[in-house]
Structures are given as structure tokens and as C-alpha cells.
Design a binder for these strands. Sequence first.
DNA 1: CATTTTCTGTGAATGTTTTCACAGCGTTTG
DNA 2: CAAACGCTGTGAAAACATTCACAGAAAATG
Lengths: 212, 212
Amino acid sequence: MASNQTIGRLSLYRRLLHGLQSDGVRNVYSHQLARLAGATAAQVRRDIMVVGYSGSAAHGYEVGALMESIGQFLDTAPVQRVALVGVGNLGRALLAHFVGRHHRFSIVAAFDVDTHKTGRVIHGCRCHTLAELGEVLAAQEIRIAMLAVPPGEAQETANRLVDAGVTGILNFAPVRLWAPRNVYVEDMDVTMALERVAYHAGNHVHEKERVT
Amino acid sequence: MASNQTIGRLSLYRRLLHGLQSDGVRNVYSHQLARLAGATAAQVRRDIMVVGYSGSAAHGYEVGALMESIGQFLDTAPVQRVALVGVGNLGRALLAHFVGRHHRFSIVAAFDVDTHKTGRVIHGCRCHTLAELGEVLAAQEIRIAMLAVPPGEAQETANRLVDAGVTGILNFAPVRLWAPRNVYVEDMDVTMALERVAYHAGNHVHEKERVT
DNA sequence: CATTTTCTGTGAATGTTTTCACAGCGTTTG
DNA sequence: CAAACGCTGTGAAAACATTCACAGAAAATG
């Protein structure tokens, strides 16, 4: 019923709403949200339809209530515990990025093969050996992992994550992973993104970029 | 003519083909490429259609020639010079990631506001002040930038990049950027990606994940 | 209190992307 | 050499996503 892109936008709306709330805004119209999200008003309304929330024609959407509804629809816990595998350059950047800054996601365990790293606490997060993976993930009931290992080890590591009960993987390795049906894999491939940027940056015409 | 996602997949194919070539593979069928790319054979054939290359029914696609054709279609220079703005945790990770590893993209200039960083060479890349942005970008004919600054400064920095002649931005800040029509912006938003993963990782049914 | 305005929610239209399904053709096989 | 096979290229269908356009309703206006 809810498309993948709708999911993405809903979480974006939630973040924007959070910001609005901090600014003391209590109500918001679809076109305002649309402007913030880089979408159209119609799309915002459609997206909000799927979560089942209704605004009022007079005052638009109530910020707090809408946030609540979206949260309920996405039905993820208020705080998600996430594991990080691979504490290289990227892994450390991710750790630093998520420490403190994020209320929704918390990296609660890190893993690496490098024995210089294992056993230590990096950016406030304990780094374990891969052997402890199953144990730690089970103990902390972690179901989401970020995978930031070298390409060659990505598939093998993903398998171990799946065995350890992970059902969602955010994969940073520039490799396509195989995983069973019930495990969701999303790729964040910087190179692929750069390729797209490079393509569009070359003198092609863009009909439908950001609104003027 | 070519959709955004086709562009993405084409660059993925090219990368995969590069790997195959290194392994001494000379010919490849659409279903093999599909398996590697996590797509369907029909999709691979459609994508290849748009670049104008034709394989043979008997031996599939010629690896080298197909790579060549895709490259010609994407019509980007063999090596792309890229600027990095924001040398924080993420920025340094990106620098480290692209140093040496990538043949296609090369970060040739970095920029930051922190005077502890400016003037120094980090991961083999000179770090300039933002004031030098226009000058350096013009001198090196850089048209692509990665934006890894804090959310609050993202829009302002993007504006300066646009003024400096950049036509493609890969934005890592969790903020929607406004840019003129002729500038392409692609967002890499880790939080949004994580939200999607979290949603799907929760007990929802996936009809169409990776093939078994 | 009638009119105008401005918003939501949504059916229908439109646009885009993926998949199906098969003709056509070299290659292999009997 | 004829039949069978397995592949590509592609028109057509299906699936999916976005936008249009308008009814209905609450507030503002005169």
C-alpha cells in the first residue's frame, strides 16, 4: 500500500515537522511542508493519506499529531538500536555522526576484524570482534545493521548478520548483496551517486529539478 | 530518454563489467549481468538499449565494447575532478575512500572553514579556505562537488558552489537544497536511508526483494 | 447571512518504469 | 540440412508513481 518512496518521504516529513515543532510552529499546510521537502503539495497530501491522518481545511495539519501519526504508521520504536560492522574511515565517520546528534537512531555496538580496535570504545561505542556478533546482537535485540566493510568481505559479513537475526541492512560497500527475502537491504553507494551527478552535471537539460 | 535509475544502473553495469574484464571474461549475457547487478535480464537489455549498443544472440555482449559504449553514452570524462566542501568526520572518510581506490573520480580540492585544516594537505588533498573556492574551482575546471558540511551551512555553501560554476552537487547534509534548474543535486541522506531500512526491517512483507 | 477564499481529501488522468512475451537469428545437434 | 536451442531486441501490457482538478468544509469578509 505504501510505496518505498512514500516511506522515505514520510520520514523526511517527520524530521521537518520535528524542526517546525522546535520553532514553536503548531500547524502546517501541505504546500508549506511540500516546499520544505522539495515535493509538491499534492504529493504531500497523498503521502499523508496513507498514514491515515486527517488535517483540517482551515488550519492544515497539526504538527504534533501528524508526527505522532507518521510515527505510528512507520511503527518503528522511538529509538532504534543499530549495529555497525566495519570501523574503518567510513565507520568512524558514521559513529561520530550518530553520536548525540540523532534521537531516532543509536549505534549501540560496533564490530571489526582489526584487533587494534576490538575491545576498545570508539566515539562512545564499544567495538567487538566479529566472533561476538551473534551474542551481542541477540543480547541487545539489534535488528538493523550498517555495513561498512571492504567490498570483498561484504557478502560474507552480510551472511553473518543475517544469521545473527538482522532483518535490515544499510550497505555502504559498492557491491550488490544477496540476502533472503525477509531481509531488507538498502545500498548507499557513493560512487553510483557520483556517477549520476556527473551525468547530470554534464550539459544535459533538466526538466524537473527543484522548483524555481 | 534515459531515466535517472537507468543512469544509475548503467554505471553499475560498467563497474561490474570492469570487474569481469579483470577476470578475463570477454562476453557476458544479460542474465549474468542481471544477477550481478541485482536486476532482471529484461531490465538489463532495456538499459543497454538506450546506450545504443547491440550484443549478439549467440555470445551476448562483448565486455570491452559494452563498457566503451556505456562510457560514451554517459559521456563523462574518464576521470572526473571533484571538490569536497566540509572536511569533518564524513569529509575525511570520503577523502580516504577516494584516495587511490577510485579510477573514475578524484577529489582534487577540499575546502573548510576551520583554519586548523586550511592550508594543510589531508589524505593527499590540499585543503583551502572557502574564500578561495571560486578561484580554485575555476582554475581546475571543477564542476562537481560533494557537500559534507553541517545542515545549517548547507544551503549557503551550496549557493557559493553554484556561483563558482558547479553544476552537480552530491549533498550529504540532511537538508533539502534549493538550486537553480541547471544544477543537479543528489541527496545522500543516511538518516532517511536508515528510516527506510527500519521500516522494512519491522515485520512487513517483502514481495520483491532479492531473488532467491 | 451570503459570498469569497483557501485549504484538505481523493477519483481520475497522466506519466514513468518494469515486466512480459515473442519474433528473429546465429549456433549447435542429430 | 533441418530441427532445436538459447539468446537479443523490442512492441505491448502491466505495475507503479505523480499530478490534476474539483467537491466539500471551515474560516474570513462584506
